[in-house]
């Protein structure tokens, strides 16, 4: 089996986990989760050098931060499937006494989570702080931070973007889930992001674009980002995705941003996603 096929198989199972978690909780955010399933699969199963035995400081490891915390189902799935916690625990998503809170949290001490997120706009700042900590410790590993595109409407994000260029933070790679959708509609209808590549460039970043559903492109672009970082500018990858990717009736619409599938919809969705690693 080729490496790409392996990643595709894992991503299919991750998407099943997303559907089953949100269905089981009768709540949650399947659309953005499905859209980022390929990226997180690539990061956790190929790109990042990380340790599922988990220690908070993450010294000498690549680290991932999820700023758009509402897509927690995809984060929980790749963490569980990488061995951070038992896969069966995915069944507790959003339920009482669970470590799998609606939005990621450290409070219940779920391995793999280093910061709470959900209130948008804060993740790049946090990731920058940990990147600076690695720099102070002469730790050469990378920090990856994923943010939504609608999230870029938060002012704090641009404070962080300005800071990263000023301090030449090159051990951090920011990735924007550029699906063009947010809760109330398309970015263009709600609050246009304008010329997004030009905005990042104007703030002093190297801007790359990639197809978030093409593993060859994901692997090559992230590698390119790491190599570009030696030029002294922080690197952002604007990642084109389809919200709801992999489930036909959820694709390309904001309707499934924060809505869980019912029993019938779950079955239709799962029929489109091969069970490759065994459901929890």
């Amino acid at each position: 089996m080729t490496e790409i096929t392996k990643l595709k198989n894992i991503a299919s199972q991750v998407r099943r986990d997303i559907i089953r978690q949100t269905h089981g909780a009768s709540s949650g955010h399947p659309g953005g989760s499905l859209g980022c399933a390929d990226l997180l699969t690539a990061l956790f199963f190929k790109i990042m050098d990380h340790d599922p035995s988990f220690n908070m400081s993450g010294k000498d490891e690549d680290l991932f931060f999820l700023s758009n915390g509402h897509i927690s189902p995809v984060f929980y799935s790749v963490l569980a499937r990488s061995g951070y916690f038992p896969i069966e625990e995915l069944a507790t998503f959003r339920k009482i006494n669970s470590r799998l809170q609606g939005h990621p949290a450290t409070h219940e001490k779920l391995p793999g989570i280093r910061i709470a997120s959900g209130s948008l706009g804060q993740g790049i700042s946090v990731a920058l702080g940990t990147a600076l900590s690695k720099r102070l410790d002469n730790d050469n590993k990378f920090i990856y931070v994923l943010t939504g595109d609608g999230e870029l409407q938060e002012g704090q994000v641009w404070e962080a973007i300005m800071f990263a260029a000023h301090y030449k933070v090159t051990n951090l790679i920011a990735i924007v889930d550029w699906n063009g959708q947010q809760i109330d509609g398309s970015n263009d209808d709600v609050m246009s992001l304008g010329d997004l590549p030009a905005k990042w460039k104007a703030f002093g970043w190297t801007v790359l674009e990639m197809d978030g559903h093409n593993f060859e492109d994901i692997l090559a672009t992230v590698q390119n980002a790491k190599e570009k970082s030696v030029e002294g500018k922080p690197v952002v990858i604007l990642m084109k995705t389809d919200m709801g990717k992999g489930v036909d009736f959820m694709e390309g619409t904001h309707a499934w941003h924060g809505k869980a599938p019912n029993d019938e919809q779950k079955e239709i969705a799962l029929a489109q996603l091969e069970e490759t690693l065994g459901d929890y």
């Binding site: 400081s57 804060q122 700042s125 946090v126 920058l128 900590s133 102070l136 410790d137 800071f163």
Partner: peptide
């Protein structure tokens, strides 16, 4: 080397501080 001027951007400063603490600072 252990000081970071963040400019007039207090929200970012709080996030960066949280991130630094993750690394043990």
């Amino acid at each position: 080397d252990r000081f970071f001027q963040v400019g007039i951007a207090e929200a970012n400063m709080m996030g960066i501080a949280a991130g630094l603490s993750i690394g043990g600072k």
